[in-house]
Write a protein that binds this DNA or RNA. Sequence first.
DNA 1: ATAGGGTTAG
Length: 706
Amino acid sequence: MNLLLKETKRMPLSSALPFSSLQSSKAFLDSESFYDTLLRCCNALTTLKQIHSSLATSGFIVQSPHLGAQIIIKYSKYGDPISAKSLFLDLRGPNSFLWNTMIRAYANGGHPFETLELYLLMRRTGIAPNNYTFPFVLKACASKSLTLFGKLVHGDAIRTGFDSDIFVEAALVDMYAKCGQTEDGRRVFDRMPRRDLVCWTAMITAYEQAERPQQSLILFHQMQQQGLSADSVTVVSVASAVGQLGDAKRAQSVHAYAVRNAFLEDVCVGNSIIAMYAKCGNVENARLVFDRMKERDGISWNSILSGYTQNGEASEALLLFDHMQVSECKPNPVTALIMVSACAYLGSQHLGRKIHKFIIDSKTGIDITLWNTLMDMYAKCGNLDTAIEMFNDRHPSERNVSSWNVLISGYGMHGHGKEALKIFSQMQEEGVEPNHITFTSILSACSHAGLIDEGRKCFADMKKLSVTPEVKHYACMVDMLGRAGLLYEAFDLIKEMPSPPNDGVWGALLLACRIHGNTELGKIAANNLFQLEPEHTGYYVLMSNIYAASSKWHEVGKLREDMKSRGLRKPAAFSVIEFGKEVHGFHTADQLNPYSREVYRKVEGLAVEMKMAGYVPDLSCVLHDVEEEDKQQILNYHSEKLAVAFGIMKIDPEMAIQVTKNLRVCNDCHSAFKFISYIYRRKIIVRDANRFHHFEGGTCSCKDYW
DNA sequence: ATAGGGTTAG
């Protein structure tokens, strides 16, 4: 043993030598070619470090730039530029190749700042950068969005004449794109005399990343006209662009293109096609692609799972999640995030807890993002207390803006506007800067609670905190003013908007017109909506509601005809209630639930009891022009009433009855639940498409303001 | 001897 150690000390590298015959000559052992051979055979970082230290003591490196370069190249291969750095600095007058090698080691090893530092040192030393240098340096600028540095490097490229090298140009386009300066990139692109596929793809990707999918597709078209055909990288970008457009028809043609050229062999292409279909609302085709994939990775699974969640088929996602667990791909933290969101969408606390437990058991760790999503899930499943506890369980230094945002929106959706405002100022006191999502949350919290003055103040404060009001913030304001009956103030705000109002803005106004029975503004809002979203059934229904409330049956009929001719049908109302481990769903007037006979009897009984307590059915909630008696029957069978009736029969009297509905809760049901909460002394919690209603002792937490 | 374009969640 001792002998061996001695041996190693004297001849540290002999054991790494593959050719024993090479050891014979003393002269050879000290020669450059000996170390060269050694380096060529070296295949581990530890061996490389041994060779390095041996060379350093023998003083070889300084004499032989070739060996120095080999070591630096090797270090960069093993992703250890730090070890290469000191060697590099010891070298006397490294040439530009060595500089490039060192810069590359940093750039590819994920050390952008060190890359740039070295580049500056290179400039100061007076070594000229060349066509190889720029792509590495530009990549570093791109990865940290360092626009100014990027422009400086661009200037250097122009001065040295390398700005017309096709590799440098492609890197410039990419750098400007990643720095958010798409048009600067476009100028470089336009001035190129010759463009290959990589340059086109870089520009197509640039527009896609800038969320300008139309431009991406125009360029893709132009590229094909130039006689260039796409490869799988291009197709991935084009698929993302089509996904952003949400154009289902184009999605099919991109899919067909990918099939024709056998690009689906590439897993990435398959994944991006799945995501594209999901964003275009065609999750069925996404599933077909997923099912036909020869190989799937975690991203394939996550894409299809989130596809289902995005398209309102969260229960399908939960089914597929079970398949995933027995597949060769195990759930990762992103999967966890998707599944928690799926439970939040369903409003199912039982499933949410199950997933939460799964995450804890799988020990993959819960980062702050997942923690925030879990908080959000609990809030959306009606359990605001757990969300608050989870917020407090996290050390202040671990919380990020999203943690605060989730808490604010949680308070908001449960109608606690004052608390939301308190949290909003607390976060600012703690030095957390509000972002655009914070303002969406706080404005909608003010809206739910009818806190008009506070809301106006927050909206005005946005600019002070250098957050530019976006269309969605205007939508919140219109919603807030509109609900409060300030319809014309809301309309004036729309007219002042710097960018054209979208469906969210007009939708908020339309809803407000329904609450306050304003046909005039309602018509304006509806006409805009029919143009923007001709396929969206909800708006036809809302407008019909407005007409029905003032008995304009002729207009109601016209709208119904209009819907029919477009092939639209009112989405079925659906309410869900959890009973132990069972989840029970109720459609209006369906007989599918095993308890439906009991539930129907109960609901009719409830109507009688409520009437004795003073309840008057709100017949304006029935859209059809039918007999009064039929209207009462239709109201009784609303899905949320069926679910609540079920709850009264089955759920432990000590526990709250919690119901989730896919659409907004109707006026009549809202009034009925106040009576039921009083008569039966029960807490009823209803989550509708918009917010939570907590009924207790004859009142609702929304104070009839929703 | 060295180089440029890519996918999932919120």
